[in-house]
């Protein structure tokens, strides 16, 4: 067989349709009516849910930290300037998280994955890879925001609780040994570290389970297409 024969073989195979019967207009209409979500629509939905969760989390924690917590802190004696300093830190955290949210949203709108059918293969692959990367980064930003918030809450709670305990026992800070304070801090850091690692591993696992393999294959296909152009 010669290579030029392939076209005629293909032509014959196409005519025989390899067992595929022609669909009638009614069948096509049924296909249109029983359609399910495409991968791009699923990613889009997940990203939108991710954005909603992130915004919801920012708003909830903002209200909690800047409205409810100050009401509670007022009842704590000598809450001191550290609460104010932590409040500023927390505010910066919200500001950065919100900034990232806006950045991701604008980037995502630019990609417009819904228009992949109007793009060529290379652009379509690039769009989906970018959308998935945004989705993954959104997870990480949410995690970072959550962890910073958690750390600030932990430090505030630790200091406040510590002061209250000292007051109730009629002790001063100087009366406690250095290693006890260090141990308490170390335990707190270890707990925070364990929570951080747990949440990070969970997020990674969820993403990889959902789209890890898919993203890997898309990237490999895109690489193959781009390698051609080198």
């Amino acid at each position: 067989m010669k290579f030029d024969e392939l076209k005629s073989i293909w032509e014959q195979a196409s005519q025989q349709k390899s067992g595929h019967p022609d669909l009638q207009k009614e069948d096509i209409l049924v296909l249109l009516k029983t359609r399910t979500r495409s991968i791009v629509e699923k990613i889009d939905l997940n990203i939108r849910i991710g954005f909603l969760i992130l915004v919801g989390m920012i708003i909830y924690l903002f209200i909690d930290n800047f409205i409810f917590t100050p009401l509670l802190v007022k009842r704590v004696p000598e809450s001191g300037s550290y609460v104010y300093a932590l409040g500023i830190l927390d505010f910066i955290n919200y500001f950065i998280a919100f900034g990232f949210f806006v950045y991701f949203w604008v980037s995502y709108r630019k990609i417009n994955p819904h228009s992949i059918n109007n793009k060529n293969l290379k652009e379509a692959l690039q769009s989906i890879v970018r959308a998935l990367n945004i989705f993954r980064r959104l997870f990480y930003v949410a995690l970072l925001f959550f962890l910073v918030s958690l750390a600030i809450g932990f430090i505030a709670g630790f200091i406040t609780g510590f002061r209250m305990k000292l007051e109730s026992l009629g002790l001063s800070l100087a009366s406690l040994s250095f290693w006890r304070i260090s141990l308490a801090l170390l335990v707190g850091i270890l707990v925070l570290g364990a929570i951080s690692y747990g949440v990070f591993a969970l997020i990674n696992w969820i993403f990889n389970r959902l789209y890890g393999q898919y993203l890997h294959k898309l990237k490999a296909t895109l690489k193959e297409l781009e390698e051609t152009a080198e």
Partner: peptide, 8 residues
């Protein structure tokens, strides 16, 4: 082709 290659 876009649909085939990007389908999941």
């Amino acid at each position: 082709i876009n649909t085939a290659i990007t389908s999941f």
